[in-house]
Structures are given as C-alpha cells and as structure tokens.
Design a protein around this nucleic acid. Structure first.
Lengths: 223, 223
DNA sequence: GGCTAGGGAGAGTCCTGCTCTCATTTGGCG
DNA sequence: CGCCAAATGAGAGCAGGACTCTCCCTAGCC
C-alpha cells in the first residue's frame, strides 16, 4: 500500500474523500515548498500547514510526524519517476535500447534542477538529503520506497541477460542497486566532488554516464 | 591550510600548543561520539563539550558552530583516507595495479562499519549524512574537502592514460569524480537500494566493484 | 433548535544549537 | 611573590522548530 493511502486509512470511510483531499493538500504543499526552496533548505511543518490552508492539528491527525510526510513525498517521487521511466522505456524495441534508455533518462531526471525550479519529477536537493537519511537511518523504509524503480530495472536487466546483451556472470539483482546508485549519485554529486561543477550537465553527461555504465555490463565489443 | 589549523590560527601564537591541544580534544571527542553513535544519530554540541571535558564557551571560541566541527572532522577523515590509500597504492607496481588497488581499497574503506564500531578511518553513517549536506548545501567546501582524494585518483588515472591502460576518449578529470562517487555510494547504499542488504560486503563486493568500474574504463579485452 | 464530531487557532512544551555574563583560573612579567 | 590581562568554566538565557493540548467554532444531522 502506498504511504499516502496509509495516512488516508486513518480516517473513517465515509469521510474518506474529504480525508484524501486533505492529505493530498498536505502533499501538494510539500512538493511546492520543496520545489521553491533554495538548495539545502528544508521546509518547516508550519510552512506546509500554512501553505495547505489547514491546521497543525489536522497535519498531525494524518501524519505521525514530519518524517512521515517526507516519506510519503519520497514515495510519490520515486513512483512517479518509475512511471515516467517505464513510459520512456516502453518505446524502445530491443533490450539494449531499453537499457540505454533507462540509464540516460534516469540520469537526466536525477540532475539537479537548473534554477530554483524543481517539480514532483525532479527531486530537489532536499529530497536527496532525505533520501540519505532514509538510506542510513531507515534502511527498511528506504528499500521499500525504491521498489518500483528497482523492479523496473531488474525487469530490463533480466531480459538483457536472457538475450545475452549483458556480460556473462553479472548478477543482475545486485547490479540493479549498483546501477541505480551509480546514476543517481553521479548525477547529483560527481561534478562537485571532482570540482568541475556543472560540466556534465546536459546530454553530454548522459552519454558519458551511459558509456561508464554500459561498458561495464555489456557483453561483446564496446559500443 | 587544513581546517583544524584554521581553528587553531584564531588563537595567539605563544598559546598555540595549548590551543591545538584543546581543538584536538574537541575533534577527538567528535570522532569518539561518531564512532559510538548508533546509525544515523547525530551527536549534540553539548555531548562533544562534555566528553572533551571542556566548556561550551571554549567550543564556540574555536569553532564557529557545529558545522565547522563537522567540517573539520570530515576533512580529517578524507585526508586520513587519502593517506592510507596512497600508502596501499604505492606498493603496486603498474598503473593498472595501482588503479585496481585504489578501487578495491577505497571500496573497503567506504563499507559501513560492521557493528557499532567505526573509527577515524571508517566514516560512520553520520559522516556520510554530513557528506551529503556538504555536497548539496555547501558545494565549495565539499569540493575543497575532497581534494586529497581527487588528486590521488587523478594522478593514478593520468599515468594510466599515459600508458594506454584506460580506454581512449575517457576524460579522466571527470572520471575521477565519477569513480569516487560510484565507489563511495555503492559501498554505502547499493545493498539497501536493491534490498539485498549485506550481500556485497567482504571481498566479493570489492571484486564486483572492480569489475563494474574497470570494465568501463579499461581499454582492450576485459580482464 | 440542539448535539456532536471535525477542524481551526494558537498557546505551551521540549530539545538543541548558539550567545552572553560573570566569576575563576592561568600565564606572563616586574 | 603579586598583579594584570587573557583564557576558561559554569550555567542561565534566547531562538527556532517539532510536536501537544486546549478552547472554541462550524457543519451537518436529528
């Protein structure tokens, strides 16, 4: 069950619609604040409450705490990302194309928003930071949230294995996690780490990413 | 100049020794707390102060804030990591060996501490989290802190390029950041993301990591 | 009209980073 | 030794943010 639904389920059933509306308003407010926040600045619960036009009391009626709101937002962001990726990938015809498509598009989605402009589809740095909190302090929840993305990639990898596209001996269950974290964190941090901030943005970076990943998992001669 | 020295420099010169001692005690206390903390739990300034046997006032005399302490700790951790890596790498004889050595050893160092036991050499999850805060909200400081590691890897990459070990067309300045972030975050998070927590720990993981990285940057037939 | 549940407003608590004051200690020096 | 200035310790106090609680109003139902 999705996080959002969990929150909704707390309410009684006849009032379900109203409740879902309220929960959604909190989520929307959260996304808007994430999108408009400057780098690294988290929103406060009060801001979410004000923006959603509801009350603190209501907030804590639907969410056990700020953590749960963030979790729900994260959930939603991953899910949305996975959906859009699946959409893209479905247009490719061969396993290799699908793999390429996944890597390139996911990389693009993980690039930091260009200028104070993020969206549900472009997780903002705050989201990235929360992602780390999850990955370090709440591993079970993190794993759970990543499922849609992992599942999609594993599916693509599995068929790639089937048709001999990836190198023999690659354990694709492990590879999924490796590829996802490689893409995600490279997009976000590699330029900063190496001090060449901003160089890899744009299509060139995506191509390099594909080279980096693919030459490591593809069988046969390099592309 | 190192962060620690900056803090020390605030003090007058004759009292330098005393000051350095005090600063060092704060740093030590910080490392101890990081090492003994459970996953994801940050220490408070008060804890550092108590543990170091000094006073809040002294703390704020040497550090502009908690952020600076963390930065100093991070600095020290990276530097120590780079030193130990250089030590290891220096024992390898060919560029390829050095590259392999770097990847494998760095991966090992980035693995989460096995059981509530971290050290200056094994950055704890809290450190990882702070790393992200830096990378997202204080990019300049982050770049600066990573310099020792980046420099070392670039050196190795440069000689690898020279002797034709890496694939042609690889821009090794970019590659350094990519490789570092790939190793670091894979070690820390890939198992959690893919839900196979703990599988890749140990030497097997390091080998897989090398396969993943090397097959992407090595010229010629796969190793 | 009256009753009840849900929700708004906002005061109050707790925790933590950070500042300030004041008295004490310490080191240098005549 | 004795004095002064700087450094330090002890701890109260402030600020901001998450979270709780109480009071009251309003909507919907009989």
């Amino acid at each position: 069950m999705r996080r959002r639904d969990l929150a909704v389920a707390r309410s009684l059933d006849s009032a379900r619609v109203r409740s879902e509306g309220r929960v959604q308003r909190f989520l929307d407010a959260g996304f808007e604040l994430l999108a408009s926040a400057e780098s690294g600045k988290e929103f406060t619960v009060q801001e979410v409450v004000d923006r959603s036009g509801q009350s603190l009391r209501s907030f804590y009626q639907y969410f056990a705490g700020k953590h749960e709101l963030l979790l729900a937002l994260f959930d939603e962001a991953i899910r949305s990302t996975a959906d859009r990726l699946e959409e893209h990938v479905s247009r490719a015809t061969t396993p290799l194309d699908r793999l390429h498509c996944f890597v390139v598009e996911y990389y693009r989605m993980c690039l930091p928003a260009t200028k104070g402009h993020a969206s549900k589809n472009n997780p903002t740095p705050v989201m990235a930071e929360f992602c780390h909190q999850l990955l370090t302090a709440h591993q079970a929840e993190a794993s759970r949230a990543f499922v849609p993305l992992v599942t999609l990639l594993e599916k693509i990898l599995a068929e790639s294995v089937g048709s001999g596209v990836v190198r023999p001996g690659l354990e694709y269950e492990d590879a999924a996690g490796a590829i996802l974290s490689t893409i995600m964190f490279n997009a976000a941090y590699a330029p900063t780490i190496s001090g060449t901030a901003g160089l890899r943005h744009g299509d060139q970076g995506a191509d390099q990413m594909w080279q980096f990943v693919s030459a490591g998992i593809l069988a046969g001669p390099r592309v």
